[in-house]
Amino acid sequence: MDVAYPVGLVVVAAAIIIGFTALVREKDDLHRILLTDLAEILALVLIALVATDLAEALILPGLVVGISELMAVSEVYIAKEGLRAPTGPPFRIEVMNSAPGILALILVAYGIVLSGFTGGVIAAVGAVFYFMCRGHTEQFELIETVSGYAWAFWIGAFFIFMFLPGYWFFGVMIAGGAILLKVMAKMSLVGTMRGGGPDV
């Protein structure tokens, strides 16, 4: 443990130097977005090296911050370049008919069991995969309203923890459920944002 930490720091420092050198030489904007994804990974390595439960609790917010910033920046990129959804026949392979149903069912069910951030992300992967392969009906409003209420519930749970700690049990249950719903709803919106959806 004691030797590993400095070694890890040196490795990360070398990685940062390599990655940022690539970034200095890069002129294309989309390539820059891709490289910032690399930067997120390096930041997480730095936190992971601390190796306590606290570090783990810091990684989870770090991850979600990273993905939401990536989402916003890529959307700004699309708006800036005025890019449109590609036309032409959508790309299909056979497994896109058979896999999504079963895999999404497994992932969403497992995500609901997990609850919290982890469960939200796992369930969202299932939902994104399903929407990607099967198309979707436009129900933005509903999903966004749900996630808004989930956010409010989580804030309520936070105040339970802080000011009525005796009711910690309700706090845990509300927080786990609300964060699951919130993360899952927000992330699955990504799946519907690809637009169009295959004509099946």
């Binding site: 056979e94 497994v95 008919n97 058979s98 896999a99 079963i102 895999l103």
Partner: peptide, 8 residues
């Protein structure tokens, strides 16, 4: 069997 269904 589940794997077969997944893999079309």
């Amino acid at each position: 069997f589940i794997g077969n269904r997944i893999c079309h």
